[in-house]
Design a protein around this nucleic acid. Structure first.
Lengths: 103, 103
DNA sequence: GATTTACTTGACTTATTTTGTCAAGTTAAT
DNA sequence: ATTAACTTGACAAAATAAGTCAAGTAAATC
């Protein structure tokens, strides 16, 4: 499975772009973008969207990758991470159900 | 399904404890505990553990409830929350697999 | 082998978010 | 009307995340 930062780097390379080009176009420090691509920093949501646009890649997919890694990161030291995710899913289902019932 | 803050309040009540008693025993501001129980604030991990101990309730279960709500909260505005969780699970499985392979 | 180019790294500052505190407020019982 | 239990809101403090800049590699080119 490809990680978010790998996808980011590959997308840039597919477009034959240099870091400094992306940097100047999107007004994001080149060092930051480099860190995004090495996985040392997480971009903000707005940056993910900017990048997806500029690389002409699927925005939703990139956002899903980005967000799911944030979740995984949060659970990195959790002994019961798998159970936590299961319970989170249940809670989500419950929420969307009561949301629908209201409507 | 019971939410974390409901469990918290019920646990305290089961023990017949007043907010100020918990507050003084655990050295947590009473207002904070009140907010925990109404769901307006999330305790820290250390506080969850303290509370579980003092209420003599299952620490793991409380932690799972607490943590899963943090995850749900993070996804509250995500359109593809369900997919994000699925991908997060995949990534977790992948991680624990490569972790095992190393060992 | 010195320069240039593309990218990386680390330390630091700034911004944002989370957590804690206190005083005032509500509700219900006495 | 007082007291007791709890709640609320505004603010301060602490923790975390994001951004910046200068210096550092590594490979290609002159």
């Amino acid at each position: 499975m490809k990680s978010f930062h790998e996808i980011l780097r590959e997308s840039r390379e597919k477009n034959g772009l240099l870091l400094r080009e992306v940097s100047s176009k999107l007004q994001i420090d080149q060092a930051l973008i480099s860190k995004f691509e090495s996985g040392n920093r997480k971009p903000t949501r707005a940056q993910v969207i900017q990048l997806a646009r500029y690389y002409d890649t699927d925005k939703e997919e990139l956002l899903v990758q980005w967000m799911s890694e944030k979740v995984v990161y949060e659970l990195r030291n959790e002994e019961f991470a798998d159970e936590i995710l299961k319970v989170a899913e249940q809670k989500m289902r419950y929420l969307s159900k009561s949301k629908n019932e209201k409507a």
